[in-house]
C-alpha cells in the first residue's frame, strides 16, 4: 500500500487512487490514416517494465485529477509525480 503524493492534494493513501497504466502514450491525431499495425501499436502494445515505469494515476476518491507517476515496479519505490502535460523527469 503506497503513499502517493498527489500533485494537487499532497500525500494520500493508495486506496484513494486508481492506476491507468502506462503514461505518455499519445492518442494519434489522425487515426484513420494509420495502418492496422500502427493502430495496434497504440491500442494494445504496452511495455510492462520490471523496473522504472512511467504511469498514469487518477486521484479517483479525491480531486479526481489525472497525473503521472514514476514508479519502480520491482520495489514500488515512487521516484516522482508530475501533472499531466508536464515534462517527464529524468530518472
Amino acid at each position: 500500500m503506497f503513499i502517493i503524493n498527489c500533485p494537487y492534494c499532497g500525500e494520500r493513501d493508495q486506496i484513494e487512487f486508481s492506476c491507468g497504466g502506462e503514461a505518455h502514450i499519445v492518442r494519434p491525431k489522425q487515426p484513420t490514416e494509420l495502418s492496422d499495425d500502427e493502430w495496434a501499436e497504440y491500442l494494445f502494445m504496452r511495455k510492462n517494465i520490471k523496473g522504472v515505469q512511467f504511469e498514469r494515476w487518477n486521484h479517483a476518491h479525491g480531486c479526481r485529477k489525472w497525473f503521472n507517476m514514476v514508479r519502480d515496479t520491482s520495489n514500488d519505490k515512487i521516484h516522482a509525480v508530475y501533472k499531466m502535460g508536464e515534462k517527464p523527469p529524468v530518472i
Partner: peptide
C-alpha cells in the same frame, strides 16, 4: 471516469 480521463489527458 472515462470522459474525465479523455478531457484531462487527451483533449485538455
Amino acid at each position: 471516469s472515462k470522459l474525465e480521463d479523455y478531457l484531462q489527458t487527451e483533449w485538455p
